[in-house]
Design a protein around this nucleic acid. Structure first.
Lengths: 209, 209
DNA sequence: TTCACAATGTGAAATTAATAACAAAAAAGC
DNA sequence: GCTTTTTTGTTATTAATTTCACATTGTGAA
């Protein structure tokens, strides 16, 4: 398998989540159009993605749920699991920790960081909170590869620099401020305000018709 | 102006935010490559987007910050402003309210909803919290057009149905569960777990090289 | 058996998005 | 005043992504 498109990676992650739910319900097989309906995309899209990862279903029976989950895991998970830290234990940071607790995943949130002394030293859902000054040490000791930035926008740049210096390999930036990283660090940015403005735009557009 | 690409809409929202910061700093003009650097994209991309909205800068002086902000506003904002509600006042809901308070925006969060009786009746950052059973009434009365869903995944579908029944025009779904809406309702979904898994995937990929 | 159906798998076409290339013109330098 | 530089605006090109169209085939029914 060569290069998987970015969009395919995203969808595989989503297929897997849908499949896990099917598995829990005891469903053993699933058709491409069923997956498609759940994700509101087309069945062809699903089949194409699965073609790209080289999985082939059974004609007229669809795809084996369990097998497919495992294959997607082989593709997108790394064998040893990846440790993740959350930087900024505000509401968003806490929301993310809640999202993840209980989810059996190869991604483990193993630390959080904040500058508020009241939070440092505490543990939330099993995740210990450290001071920002300990970042380098903790990231090295716990072998943390990915950082999720949920700090206020005005701290985005300096936090990024700290993370990069500490040797982080990937950053998911939830602050509305774009940041710069060296090219050996993978950066993904998401901006809630943009999404909301986009929804508002298309709502307006529909109203005008 | 005909059809603006989805991606252009997203970028325009981001340009505006960057421009507002420049405006505050007293900067009157900006070059395409300056905007590009902030957003880590190319200058051509910026110029192309601005071309699409029909804005033309001054040769060798760049774009007028104030004018451009206003034009982007004309394109992506609706004249009367749009009222928004947050459904689910957990950590994520609160995070969103904090993001928005203080931001002068045509988007106004005017209500929130929850099922927890301790939260109902309270006000957070000026946003009152109502019970889910009041949704239809409040949405009609306050003329709410867009709903942001930050409820637990297991409530996603039923909350969506309530919103649709109440006459919502756009939904931003932050639960990891895809939902279905009639096609006169604009739906945008975002899944934090997918983003994180994507970062992890590309980190893994880099390590393998 | 044979037919019709329902599904997968995939090459080709269409669409969408990004990049390259370059003309034009204003400003600055000489 | 002429030349160089810088920056915009736009066409053309390339790349990425999605959709179409259809061949293929296992399954059940007539």
């Amino acid at each position: 398998m060569k290069h998987l498109p970015h969009k395919t990676i995203e969808r595989l992650s989503q297929y897997r989540r849908a499949l896990l739910i099917c598995l829990e319900k005891g469903q053993t097989h699933i058709y491409s159009h069923e997956i498609a309906t759940i994700q509101h995309i087309t069945a062809v899209q699903v089949r194409r993605d699965l073609m790209l990862i080289g999985y082939t279903g059974t004609l007229r029976k669809g795809y084996n749920v369990k097998e497919l989950i495992e294959l997607i895991g082989e593709i997108i998970d790394s064998s040893e699991g990846i440790n993740v830290a959350i930087i900024g234990m505000g509401n968003l940071g806490r929301a993310l920790i809640n999202y993840f607790t209980g989810k059996r995943s190869h991604l483990k949130i193993v630390a959080s960081f904040d500058i508020n002394p009241d939070k440092i030293g505490n543990t939330m859902s099993g995740v210990p909170c450290f001071g920002t000054d300990e970042m380098s040490k903790v990231i090295a000791e716990k072998d943390i590869k990915v950082g999720i930035m949920t700090v206020p926008a005005e701290f985005a740049s300096q936090t990024t620099d700290l993370l990069v210096k500490a040797g982080i390999r990937g950053i998911l930036n939830y602050t509305p401020k774009p940041v710069n990283v060296p090219k050996n660090v993978y950066l993904e940015e998401y901006d809630m305000i943009t999404s909301l403005e986009k929804v508002a735009f298309y709502v307006k557009l529909q109203e005008m018709e």
